[in-house]
Nucleic acid binder design. Sequence first.
DNA 1: ATGGCAGGAAGCTCCTGA
Length: 254
Amino acid sequence: MKIATWNVNSLKVRLGHLLEWLGRETPDVVCLQETKLEDAVFPAAELLAAGYASVFSGQKTYNGVAIVSRLPMSDVVAGIPGYADEQKRVISATVAGSRIVCAYIPNGQSVDSDKYQYKLQWLTALTAWLQSEIAGHPRLALLGDYNIAPEDIDVHDPAAWAGQVLCSGPERDAFRGLIALGLSDSFRRFPQPERSFTWWDYRMNAFRRKMGLRIDHILLTTPLAETCTACRVDVSLRGLERPSDHAPVIAELA
DNA sequence: ATGGCAGGAAGCTCCTGA
């Protein structure tokens, strides 16, 4: 089973890219973030015509998550149960016996922002919920835009980013808190090219200059990690017109 | 030190993203 995560930065703008990529890469399950679409206008019919069913939880302008899958999905849950949040950032479904959790973790804006406090509280709620979710679903994958670069190797200029949002100590502590639930960073289970990133600022030709961060991740519980045979960043969509500022991450499970 | 870029909603500018 091939699973993937991609922050599309507007599914309305990126639907053509997604359909082209689904046809070429044929992932089984794709978690999408920043769809920026209300549920009433989600392009479920277009995806179904391409062979993919969709479940989604969206809103106008901001946020919005979806899972698209060639395999049947069941037990769909939106949000973090027990955590009231108007922002549509999580959706989960069971696919082929594995629990798939699609998450768009808050950005945080800056470490002195109220949004940063929201991010840390949100991560606390996510972690507490996942602990019980993993207990009930030993085969679980957490895919999404974490808005956290876990280590300095995941940052093009660690000195410039030191202590900044996406790289700060509390955020990295929260990432390690997720790992401590028994999750494994699938990307780091394999040798990777130097300067492997998943996001680049639209400004200053950052992609061309390899000035990025690795903030999109696929974390797997041990039973799934043991079946993982590959994980990579796919930059192929960056060559198209109007690319997303994020690249997909793909993991192959036996 | 600042702004650069992109998407969306609104409306000819601002907020957010990361």
